[in-house]
Structure formats: C-alpha cells, structure tokens
C-alpha cells in the first residue's frame, strides 16, 4: 500500500496525536515524505463532503470529527465532554502557560488569591506538571504546562497560544 493510505489508517486508529517522526518510523518512510502526504490528506479531508478532519495537536497528527458534526456526534455520546474548567483554574492555567516555568507564589501574586487547591486539581488532570525547582531560597517548585494541556485546548504547540498585547 502506498504511503498516504497507510498514514490515513494510522491517523484513524491512534488515540494520541502522532508526530511525523513517529509516523515515518511506523511506515518506514522519510519524515519529509510523510509531512508531504499529511498535507495532502489534510487538504482532501478539508473538502466539504467529509465529516472528518486531519488535526494537528500537541505536535502530532490525528483524525477527528469536524466541529460542524458535533451536534450529531453528541447524540451518540451524550455528556462525553460536559466538563469545563472553572474560571479560577482557567486564570491559573493562563498564567502558567505564559509565564512558565513559574512558582506558586508568582501565580498568587498575579491572581491575588491562594492557588494550592487549583494547582492540585490541574496537576491531577495532568494539565500542568512540576517542571523543576527555582534556584531561590526554599527551592520552590516550578510549574509548566503539559501535552494534555495542548490537547485540551486544541493547540499545536505553545506558540499557538492566543497572542494578546502583553501587560505593560
């Protein structure tokens, strides 16, 4: 079988976004050729008569449903995605995403509230992880975002974070 259909098959079965290098390894082809074929697939699926799309997520590729199909898909899987993050969790994540690696005290300084329990929840959901310790008195823990974070918000990588004018 040719490269493109093989990639299509992998993108269909995978539960995790597959990076081009991993795809190349699986099909035994050059990463460059894989990227080329992925682009073609992406274009083909973008056509209006397809219900799926090739998405780029957290550094990898994957087949997913198109947002326009959501209403119908949700009839089949009711309540699948009913979870939403709280405002406090979202603000905390925003600070971590832009300021990482960042300590708890630094986050608290911006939000003006304690964030212990929010950090715990975010860590449990694997949106953040301990990214090291700061070279400062007490060696406080530094936090950073994870692949799970990118996946949840549908981002390719951190550079895709919404760009706003930075605070002066």
């Amino acid at each position: 079988m040719e490269l493109k259909p093989l990639l299509e098959a992998l993108l269909f079965v995978t539960e995790e976004p597959l990076p081009p290098a991993k795809l190349a390894e699986l099909v035994g082809a050059e990463t460059k050729a894989v990227r080329q074929a992925l682009q073609e697939l992406q274009k083909e699926y973008a056509a209006a008569d397809r219900g799926l799309q090739v998405i780029e997520l957290a550094g990898g590729f994957q087949l997913a449903t198109k947002p326009e199909a959501a209403a119908v898909v949700e009839k089949l899987y009711t309540g699948e995605k009913s979870f939403t993050l709280s405002q406090a969790a979202l603000e905390t994540l925003a600070i971590i995403a832009y300021r990482q690696p960042v300590t708890r005290v630094e986050i608290e300084a911006v939000r003006g509230v304690k964030v212990d329990s929010v950090l715990e929840t975010l860590q449990k959901r694997r949106f953040i992880r301990v990214a090291g310790r700061k070279d400062a008195p007490g060696r406080p823990v530094l936090y950073g975002t994870t692949k799970e974070f990118l996946k949840y918000f549908g981002l390719k990588d951190l550079s895709e974070l919404p760009q706003l004018a930075p605070p002066k």
């Binding site: 269909f12 079965v13 995978t14 539960e15 799309q53 998405i55 994957q62 087949l63 997913a64 449903t65 198109k66 947002p67 959501a70 898909v73 899987y77 699948e80 995605k81 939403t84 993050l85 405002q87 979202l90 603000e91 994540l93 925003a94 600070i95 995403a97 832009y98 911006v110 939000r111 003006g112 949840y152 918000f153 549908g154 981002l155 974070l161 919404p162 706003l164 930075p166 605070p167």
Partner: peptide
C-alpha cells in the same frame, strides 16, 4: 497585569469550547 491574564483566560475558554466540538477516536 491581572486583566491581561483574565483576557488570556477568556481566549482559552474559547479554545476550550471549540475543541469540545471535535471528537477523537
């Protein structure tokens, strides 16, 4: 400074909503 991150959080909320409409196997 707080307003900046509040706005970012609002953007992330939009990303969250958009991604919720996309289903993965």
């Amino acid at each position: 400074e707080y307003r900046y991150f509040r706005d970012v959080a609002a953007e992330l909320r939009r990303c969250e909503a958009a991604q919720k409409r996309v289903y993965i196997r």
